[in-house]
Simulated scan of single mutants.
Amino acid sequence: MLTIWGRVNSSNVQKVMWCVGELGLEHCRIDAGREFGVVDDPDYRARNPNGRVPTILDDGVTLWESNAICRHLARKHGRLLPAALADKARVDMWMDWQQTEAMPALSPVFWGLVRTPPERRDQAAIADGKKKSIAAMTILDAELGRHSHVVGNTFSVADIPLAIVAYRYYGLIQDGPRLAHLDRWYRLMAERPAFVAHVGSIPLT
């Protein structure tokens, strides 16, 4: 059985859980990280030396890094990936962009507004994060103006991490510009049962 370590309110764990939900995989999830501990236990560090979540054990294979896990599960089960080689590369491109551009832009906003008491907030860092997040979402909006999903016109594993960023973006930045293509795509994502179960029903904490 697929075993997943990680807490449900972690955006990175949510990627894996949403992917698992889309694939309909039997699994066991173990709470880990933050208030649950576990990540500093020697057994866990032997699986994931970074001491972060998620980590999975899948048929004897241990993996960490959420986007890599999602791609592994999609490849293994033959779903959520486009057929064309170039489109597979675009899946990698947009998933990498989520990790290197979109989420780092939003992280100061999330940490500042959700996990920092009001009296200790760095308002300049929050404002800068909002500006960078709007710029990142504008790039994604332009891409979504070309097709219905992140890569082409079919739901793929690339949509998962970017929709999780969008969930936080919409929850934290209400004064951004209207991005019609992003709005349209996000409504589609928010209707997916696995998104509702593993992302949309979980408050930002």
Rank of each mutant, 00 (worst) to 15 (best):
A180W: 01
I56P: 12
Y170T: 01
L57F: 09
R45Y: 06
T62R: 04
V157K: 01
L144T: 12
R120C: 13
V150A: 01
D122A: 01
T116W: 07
G145M: 05
D159A: 03
H72W: 15
F155Q: 04
L144Y: 05
A163F: 03
D175F: 08
R79T: 06
D87L: 01
C70T: 14
Y170G: 11
D141N: 15
Y169M: 00
P49H: 02
S107P: 00
Q99L: 13
C70V: 14
H72T: 11
N50S: 06
V53Y: 07
R90T: 12
A124Y: 01
P117F: 13
T62V: 15
K131N: 07
K76H: 13
L140H: 07
R79I: 04
V61P: 01
Q98K: 02
A83S: 14
F110E: 09
A142S: 12
P161S: 09
D175L: 09
D59C: 08
R75W: 15
L144M: 06
D128T: 03
L162Y: 04
A136M: 07
R45C: 05
L140S: 08
T138K: 00
L144I: 07
T55L: 12
P82W: 07
L85M: 15
A124H: 03
L162N: 11
S133K: 05
I173C: 07
D175R: 01
Q123F: 13
L113M: 08
V61Y: 14
E101I: 01
I164P: 02
I126A: 06
